[in-house]
Write a protein that binds this DNA or RNA. Sequence first.
DNA 1: GACATTTGAGCGGAATTTCACATGGATTTC
DNA 2: GAAATCCATGTGAAATTCCGCTCAAATGTC
Lengths: 225, 225
Amino acid sequence: MKILVIDDEQTMQHLLRLMLEGAGYEVLSAASGEEGIRQIRAEKVDFVILDVLMGGMDGFTACAEIRRFTPVPILMLTAIAGSEADKVKGLRAGADDYMVKPFSKQELLARIEAILRRTHTVSIQADSEWTNGALELNEMMRTVRVAGKPVTLTRREFDLLAFLLKNREQVFSREQLMEKLWGEQAYNVTTRTVDTHIKTLRIKIGEAGGAIETVWGLGYKLVKL
Amino acid sequence: MKILVIDDEQTMQHLLRLMLEGAGYEVLSAASGEEGIRQIRAEKVDFVILDVLMGGMDGFTACAEIRRFTPVPILMLTAIAGSEADKVKGLRAGADDYMVKPFSKQELLARIEAILRRTHTVSIQADSEWTNGALELNEMMRTVRVAGKPVTLTRREFDLLAFLLKNREQVFSREQLMEKLWGEQAYNVTTRTVDTHIKTLRIKIGEAGGAIETVWGLGYKLVKL
DNA sequence: GACATTTGAGCGGAATTTCACATGGATTTC
DNA sequence: GAAATCCATGTGAAATTCCGCTCAAATGTC
């Protein structure tokens, strides 16, 4: 995850870099709006932190300019507290959020995550019903039913089933499943863990469990019933 | 079903059109409050989505203006996350519901359907009544009753319950709840706080408390009773 | 000062993961 | 083509980690 910090103050650049890198983000720097825009055009940037108060092009202008060619999430920074009008101005310029200095590391990270969560959820389908034979899964409600009867699954079980169901007929290795569902943490965990979850899943979803097939030497797949 | 979107932002217009047309609604656009009102007068509109933040006439004024001549359902949109109590202002202006940007497609459609369900079945009234089993909640009056008996809730408790009730069956993480209900201040507060409010809520609403379910590892949801 | 809100730590229990062993499918060897 | 061997997978229970609940105390608000 690459975050571009656009700010002409050295101190702020340094502070942000410290906070962000500490949280595992990759950080790029730009000392002006113009340079920032150039960088966004030049390479893939996942997130932009933009100071309102800068020499040359101000933050609002830069924000609007960036919005003209990319929907990359933008968090604006301002030194002046309180001005509701400024906040509105920032949001209208296309920023996703607006933060007042000074701020804690915790607040910075929380806001970034909140924005990322939001921009991600917009793309999720409204229709989150998936079925296979007697199996019904509702992603939004996080409920599963087999032949009409509710079944309670734990988080991992649900995620695993939902993933396989959404990618029916496709074979996934344990490693692939771990990466998709466990994310970063996948590397601290044995792949055999997947087996265990598959086992309990098969038991819990009863008659629909037959749909989860073992592909010997490769992994698992969920077949159409 | 014709839905009129009143918003001066191109991007939001576009996004809403995408979401709504995807769900089978017919979409009309207006770039200002004045233009929107003209369109409502000119032709039959079944539903209005209205941005609070606009150049020229603001959303509240437009809303009140529309209410003077038609009971068409109105959903208001705002960019700034604030306390739920702020919603009262919108509701008083005659809106049927109030939604904070950004929002997911699910949320948008769920809210529209909820409003339509209400305005269709019940007589057309500005009061926003929500029920679930023995639980009755009136958003305008900020009152709650369980099995007919009044229950006094504090502000946070009420906001939390109202939000969950209005987004029934959907799972929300503590972080999401904080963002939606606490707004800006969310970042200075521990997510533990949510737990505590949930606890007291469950106790206070007694038999109806069973509807508030813990989704282990994810958050909370309110299920239909 | 009364009331609402928030915090923080400890407890208990649920979910997850690991591990050791059983089973069973593939491959090789004769 | 049967036996032997080697892995991959299935299984159950134990170990561990994680997470929600609770409660009392601290803090904020009117």
